[in-house]
Design a protein around this nucleic acid. Sequence first.
DNA 1: TATAGATTATTCGTGTACAAAAAAATCTTT
DNA 2: AAAGATTTTTTTGTACACGAATAATCTATA
Lengths: 148, 148
Amino acid sequence: MVTQKDYILERQAGHLLRRAHQRHSLIFQEYIGDSQLTPLQFAALVKLRDLGEVSQNHLGRLTAMDAATMQGVIKRLAARGLIERRPDPNDRRRLILSLNKEGRKLIEFLIKKGGAITDQTLKPLTPAERKIFLDLLVKLARLNKVSG
Amino acid sequence: MVTQKDYILERQAGHLLRRAHQRHSLIFQEYIGDSQLTPLQFAALVKLRDLGEVSQNHLGRLTAMDAATMQGVIKRLAARGLIERRPDPNDRRRLILSLNKEGRKLIEFLIKKGGAITDQTLKPLTPAERKIFLDLLVKLARLNKVSG
DNA sequence: TATAGATTATTCGTGTACAAAAAAATCTTT
DNA sequence: AAAGATTTTTTTGTACACGAATAATCTATA
């Protein structure tokens, strides 16, 4: 044989994860209906809806965004007038975030489409396969850090 | 009940795909050993190794990058002196890409680590689960566009 | 063969993604 | 109480990611 080509890009987990995520992003954008709102902004709004008030860093940990990314996401949500930011009186390093009326209204409206987005993302699978896939994906999404 | 909270971010396919991909990126970075080389650059080099010569847009389709992203990736690979670019004499819109000696040497060296990266990415799963997961992921990565 | 339509590559603008570093506030330890 | 370490946020720099616009080229067909 001329060259060994037993490394097939199309069978690597990372490449496939990237493409599956890519496909999901397209579906999100199509189904969410709000061309301004991104998946990360949506995730931040959902968590703020669930928790009421959270510090910026804490929200970042809950939504798997690092501090710099969170900073940008929050800045844009605030610029759009969806969230409030106020310093924590008990720890003045912290910035406490919460939804305002506008933000609450928007996320309650948009979250109804969340189920359809996940359904459409998993549509190539049978119901049984969907459950299996999600269970396995949960294991692969856990950030069990290698060292530390 | 006060509020309906049946939408759990942590159970949505998109959020999980993003986090699994995130975890894979960390593993890639740790295992590849070359702090300059990114997953997309690696993918481009692998495909160039497999095919010899390809146009820039075609390489983008093969690696699931749009034209603008491809442009940036190729620019950086060329700046690092790993690939050659020449216009296609048969179609002067096209830019034909290929590895040079340096690029061939690098990818042949790095590709040996590719298997370990996929292994480590799938490590939370049993061997049987890995096969199932990859099979399902292939289905979800396919860009069967909704309309068109 | 003229021209409308498609393709290729580039550029611009916005939004993740994260490392690294800086600045302010807080906590720990002695 | 002060030094030293840690935490929170912000900023900077690089690299995806993709829509949209543009220029050059090619193709198909009227």
